[in-house]
Design a protein around this nucleic acid. Structure first.
Length: 195
DNA sequence: GTTTGGATTACT
DNA sequence: GTAATCCAAACA
């Protein structure tokens, strides 16, 4: 079983696919709130037409100028903050998009922020979970692994069964099986659940 | 300066 | 089905 040291020092120094898969089942801690990661997607910095790095010089600069484990947070559709973790390795750099969480701690706070009471509707989407956890543009560039940031990951308590599907909500490179889900989770995003 | 296209969500 | 709402990038 992995320990916290392994998680922090090695997880984000792998390729995006490995990191996205390994994050399933970990606990994302954000201030007083937390949730189990049940859905992620991998985006590759090279050769992935769906990744920001493919079209945005600013995203390529972010990869060059930040350490593995940094948060890449951006505003999508002018309304929703989406949170990624930067990964860097010899076998490729990229991002892991955090798409859904199973709420654990700070549920009352999440309900207030989301104006929703159903546990399944607090963090079941990339835009929803940032609202519930209080993540926004001010967190862009912060580290998930360094210092005393509000953002941390805790190693999974027990092994998790994982499903793999194609990524959703994109049009380019949409056929790649780069989306990962915790098998049987009721807390994944509402779009096609896969598996 | 203007146009375009989104890694989404909530509501009808 | 579709409105909401803003930014980076591309174009003029």
């Amino acid at each position: 079983m992995k320990n916290q040291c392994l998680l922090e020092k090695e997880l984000f120094h792998t390729d995006p696919l490995t990191a996205a898969r390994e994050l399933i089942g970990t606990e994302l801690l954000c201030g007083s709130c937390s949730g189990i990661v049940v859905e992620t997607e991998a985006y590759a910095a090279a050769g992935d037409e769906a990744a920001h790095t493919f079209t945005r010089p600013s995203a390529r600069a972010f990869v060059a100028n930040n350490d593995a484990g940094s948060a890449y947070v951006y505003l999508n559709y002018g309304m929703y903050w989406l949170a990624n973790v930067l990964v860097k390795s010899k076998s490729g750099d990229g991002f892991v998009l955090l798409r859904a969480l199973e709420p654990r701690k700070g549920i009352a706070t999440m309900r207030r922020r989301r104006s929703r009471k159903d546990l399944r509707d607090l963090c079941s989407g990339p835009g929803k979970l940032t609202i519930a956890m209080g993540i926004n543009g001010k967190d862009h560039g912060k580290s998930f692994v360094r210092g005393h940031n509000k953002l941390r990951f805790r190693t999974a308590e027990s092994p998790v069964e994982i499903l793999t599907t194609s990524r959703i909500g994109i049009t380019k490179s949409a056929d790649l099986p780069w989306r990962f889900l915790k098998k049987g989770s009721l807390f994944v995003s509402a779009q096609k659940k896969g598996g």
